[in-house]
């Protein structure tokens, strides 16, 4: 772990990303204690609707008089919960499929990879929208839709790594020593294939937060009064451009969080695979 952190610390954008991710994590965990008006998750104060940013309400208030700063802070937990659930479920589906397809050859492997290709060919947002529309609109169906559209990314990565590794000399040597396939796949190939998966998962967390916000914006994700960032932007539309703060701060939260995860993911990828190092 030490060399990874040491190398990461030389990569300024990645450190920035790491900082953002740590802050978002802290907000998600300690949000209710940090937020100045934690009760604003559900309460409404019609007397102070749409107040511009001030000392009391640094990000202003929304159409129900709720403190936007508090709701942005409280929204971090929901966003991370969605992102983590989606990425973990997608990994649970995608990684085993990639291992099977990569280690075995034949019709099973071909079928898995062709299905993966088909799912990858459809833009993720479109597919998630279609799926979310089919299910009843709720946070759970949004997460399910996102998981069902994100697993192929993991399958492809794990497939490629498994292919490479199962042709490698050390796997050949293991077969020579008499190791059985489950031992080779789970104890040797999987750990060796894991680093690109972690990189992809990090980028995927950011991406999922973005897509979840889009689904929330379109009314297919979180339901009011949950302090969801996408939902807040959707609600703010009627009050634009007068109440500029209403859309701006949740939007910035999404932007900074997604960027943080992407920068961290890119930095990790550079460490895992120096061949992909960007020229900067």
């Amino acid at each position: 772990m030490k060399p990874i952190l040491a190398r990461l610390s030389r990569d300024l954008p990645a450190m920035l990303g790491l900082g953002v991710v740590v802050v978002v994590l802290l907000l998600a965990i300690f949000g209710p204690w940090i937020a100045p008006h934690p009760e604003d998750a559900s309460a409404s104060h019609l007397l102070r609707r749409l107040k511009p940013p001030s000392a009391d309400f640094p990000f202003g208030t929304d159409n129900l008089g709720r403190d936007i700063l508090s709701r942005v802070i409280l929204g971090a937990r929901g966003a991370l919960q969605i992102a983590l659930t989606v990425v973990v479920v997608a990994m649970l589906i995608g990684v085993p499929l990639g291992l099977v397809a990569g280690y075995r050859s034949g019709w099973l492997s071909e079928t898995i990879m062709r299905v993966t290709d088909v799912v990858l060919a459809i833009p993720q947002l479109v597919l998630a929208l279609a799926l979310a529309q089919l299910l009843t609109p709720s946070l759970e169906s949004a997460m399910l839709a996102l998981s069902l559209t994100y697993w192929p990314f993991f399958t492809r990565i794990v497939y490629a790594e498994t292919r490479r590794l199962s042709a490698s000399l050390f796997v050949d040597a293991l077969r020579g020593v008499g190791a059985a396939s489950p031992r080779i796949v789970f104890l040797h190939i999987l750990p060796n294939a894991l680093s690109p998966v972690i990189v992809r998962a990090t980028i995927g967390l950011g991406f999922t937060i973005l897509v979840a916000a889009v689904l929330g914006f379109l009314g297919m994700g979180a339901t009011p009064p949950a302090p969801d960032w996408g939902l807040a932007i959707a609600d703010s539309r009627t009050y634009l451009p007068r109440a500029w703060w209403y859309a701006t701060f949740p939007g910035l939260a999404i932007l900074i969080t997604v960027m943080g995860f992407n920068l961290l993911g890119d930095g990790l990828r550079d460490i895992v695979d120096p061949r992909l190092r960007r020229s900067r």
Partner: peptide, 9 residues
């Protein structure tokens, strides 16, 4: 290649 025949992890 004795080195490549060992799992690096």
């Amino acid at each position: 290649d004795a080195g490549a025949a060992l799992d690096p992890w």
